[in-house]
Design a protein around this nucleic acid. Structure first.
Lengths: 185, 185
DNA sequence: TGCCGGGGAGAACGAGCGTTCTCTAGACTA
DNA sequence: TAGTCTAGAGAACGCTCGTTCTCCCCGGCA
């Protein structure tokens, strides 16, 4: 499956460059240079830039959801599952090079032109919402479906705030709000 | 001040095209065509595309905040001020051609390259946060500062959800969450 | 040793962009 | 009427990008 090392190298380079600088701002030659791969090989792996963008978004979706799930599973059971989501966000925001949600950014760049970007945003947020439903249910929240929608808002809002820098501790503040949302009502 | 009609025409064209298709996807010639202005006049008004982008974001910030304020002031006093914010969002989301937050989109496109975009996002969200503090205070919320941060998350999260289409009624659902946030605690 | 196929480096190509320049037509003045 | 200035239309320029093509080298085989 992922036994092709040069394909992985290309995807690593694309991930770093696309996320850091934006998709349109990064040329195929920059990816080729960072991956240390010939242009011919690059186009053998991905027949066009759009295919590379699709693979980039697919892999980032997979990895992000997996990282979130792992983080939540590895937090002590004493903390509510939905709070662990925001602890995960806090760690992510502190990552050097954090630059917001890759799917929201891609939507901003390409949403009007490429259905790929809007589809990627939609499916990523839908997967996240589904995870939030499951976590809310495990916490014994009364209405897991609507709680998950509220939590989804808080997650995306915290990501925007972390990008903008308008709130001092976005993850911690969103965590407080999450506690109120799932306990009140 | 804004007595220059061709400058207004240019800004109208830029607003429509930039918001709809993205900033990088729209060329100066497309703006010239839509504004029905000669290229020479366009460059007399704005010496470079970056100046036009800055003016576009500044005007959109001004108009959006003003529209929100007007909407809130014109809603009956029986509904909490912070709920009126989400009623405003509902009306905005239903607007044809809605394509998310122009500032978040601009940040996704240009954030890594242009300090202008990150500054515009930051100042826009800060202005919004300040308004939310004032509204929360008028509602008699216990801690208006932290309530405003929570509401800001819900607003931005609802905008992302409206873009992605993952939640059926983003504004209404966020409004519920807002009520819980400001009453609980 | 002579031959051949594959892969790397990078030139080439066509398109699109932001920005500037040129040309021309028309309006206003003496 | 002759001259001058302005402004519009659009060609031109330099650059970048995605994609393809060409050339050359190097390893395997008769």
């Amino acid at each position: 499956m992922d036994a092709d090392p040069i394909r992985e190298r290309v995807l690593d380079a694309a991930d770093a460059l696309f996320y850091q600088q934006g998709i349109q701002a990064v040329g195929m030659d920059a990816i080729r240079a960072r991956a240390e791969v010939s242009l011919k090989r690059l186009y053998q792996c991905f027949p066009a830039k759009e295919a590379l963008v699709a693979a980039y978004l697919r892999r980032r979706d997979e990895r992000w959801i997996t990282a979130l799930t792992d983080f939540v599973e590895n937090t002590p059971a004493t903390t509510p599952r939905v709070c662990a989501v925001f602890d995960f966000l806090a760690a992510w925001f502190a990552t050097p090079g954090f630059r917001g949600c890759a799917f929201v950014n891609a939507f901003g760049e390409l949403g009007a032109v490429s259905p790929l970007a809007v589809q990627a945003l939609r499916s990523h947020k839908e997967r996240l919402r589904t995870r939030l439903v499951a976590l809310a249910r495990r916490d014994g929240v009364a209405d897991p479906e609507s709680a998950a929608a509220h939590l989804l808002f808080l997650v995306d809002g915290a990501i925007v705030a972390a990008s903008a820098g308008t709130v001092a501790d976005p993850a911690g503040t969103a965590r407080e709000a999450a506690l109120r949302v799932v306990t009140a009502g």
